[in-house]
Simulated scan of single mutants.
Amino acid sequence: MRRPLATSLLTLSTLTLTACSGAAEPAEDTRAPSVPTAVTATAGSASSVHVMWSAATDDRAVTGYTVYRHGHKVKELPAGTLMTDITGLTPATPHTFTVRARDAAGNVSADSAAVTATTLAATAQDRTPPTRPTALRVTPAGRDGATLTWRPARDDTRVTAYDVYQADARVHTVPGTATTARLTGLRPGTAYSFTVRARDAAENSSPDSDPADLTTAPAPGARPNTAPTDVTVRATKGAITLTWTPPRTGAPVKEYELHLNGRFATTIVWGAQPPPGPVGYTLTVPADPGVRHTLTLRARLPDGTWGDFSAPRTAVTV
């Protein structure tokens, strides 16, 4: 009676081992990411250089980038970051940079092409910022790009760089001799707002230019953008007043959701019929002067869902 049981257990054990031994193990990742391309370096002051590059690719995923100066590591950055400022540099000196991509397995790409930028000469203490750039315009450039143009700013010494901002975050830098910038990697069906600041060798930045808005084309098959448009903001002591034009939804919009600095702030509801044209709302904020706030809002659509966010606007408390 015991022998058949032993045989059955032995057979079951053999089958289990056979099944386990046949399981496929994940292949080891030994392939390095591609080399970062389109690397540029722009001197922004006597002690800083702005380095940018295009994204690398990988058979799994790129997890980060490392920037080198003269072959020595100076910055490690996450995969979503494609630019950085290298600071603390010697004035009036050439500095050479390369970039490498890395993946989760520790594979590292070869060095990118080397680029060199010469920091500006140190100047006497300069506390005067440039004037603001004017006549900013933005036009689509393909499905995921935009081209910005502006009139140059003025400075008591000279403008050394222009910084492009989106939602109060710098996304691009060009030399002070440029009056145009090309942006890529924009999402489809999204409302963007861009501003430009001029910068001099002493790192003084101008006030923001007036904003320029762009809504990218929707993805194939996606619904048209439903963001409020013509958004303006005006800061007074302890308050920010917004005005905007409601989206065209085929019915009056009675409810909006307002976000402040990327977080939900309040819901705006009209109890009666809202006005057909531009509408407004005043938001109470702390009265501390000089604080920057970024605001966006979206409408509740007739089907009960929330629409797209408006292009962001920045207000500085007074």
Rank of each mutant, 00 (worst) to 15 (best):
T284S: 14
G271A: 15
T267G: 03
T296R: 09
R298A: 03
P286S: 05
Q273P: 06
N261H: 09
N261A: 11
H259A: 13
P289F: 08
A272C: 09
L301H: 03
V279Y: 01
L283R: 10
P286V: 12
P289D: 07
R298T: 03
G304N: 01
T294L: 04
G262R: 09
V285M: 10
A287Q: 10
R263V: 13
T267V: 10
V291M: 10
F264R: 08
Y256V: 03
G277P: 04
G280Y: 13
P274G: 08
W306S: 05
T296G: 07
A272I: 10
W306Q: 01
G277H: 12
N261G: 08
L301Y: 03
T305L: 01
F264Q: 05
T296E: 11
P278G: 06
T284Y: 05
H259N: 15
P274S: 08
G271N: 15
P274C: 12
L258W: 02
W306D: 00
P302T: 01
Y281A: 14
G280W: 11
P286G: 07
T305W: 00
G304S: 02
T294R: 06
A299V: 00
L295K: 08
P302W: 05
H259L: 15
T282V: 09
H259K: 06
R300Y: 00
H293M: 06
L295H: 08
P302L: 03
R298L: 11
R292H: 14
G304M: 00
R298V: 06
H293Y: 14
V291C: 07
P274V: 13
V285R: 06
P302S: 02
V279A: 13
A272Q: 15
T284A: 15
G271Q: 13
L297T: 07
Q273N: 11
P276T: 15
D288A: 14
G271I: 12
P278C: 08
T266N: 07
W270E: 13
Y256Q: 04
D288V: 13
G304H: 02
G280P: 04
A299M: 00
R298S: 07
A287P: 01
G271E: 14
P302Y: 00
P276E: 11
D303F: 00
L283D: 09
L258P: 05
L301R: 11
H259R: 14
G290Y: 03
N261M: 14
W270L: 05
R298P: 02
G280S: 15
L258H: 07
H293Q: 10
Y256G: 02
P278R: 12
Q273A: 14
T282H: 13
L260D: 11
P289G: 05
R292W: 11
H293A: 05
P274R: 03
R292M: 04
L260R: 14
W270Y: 14
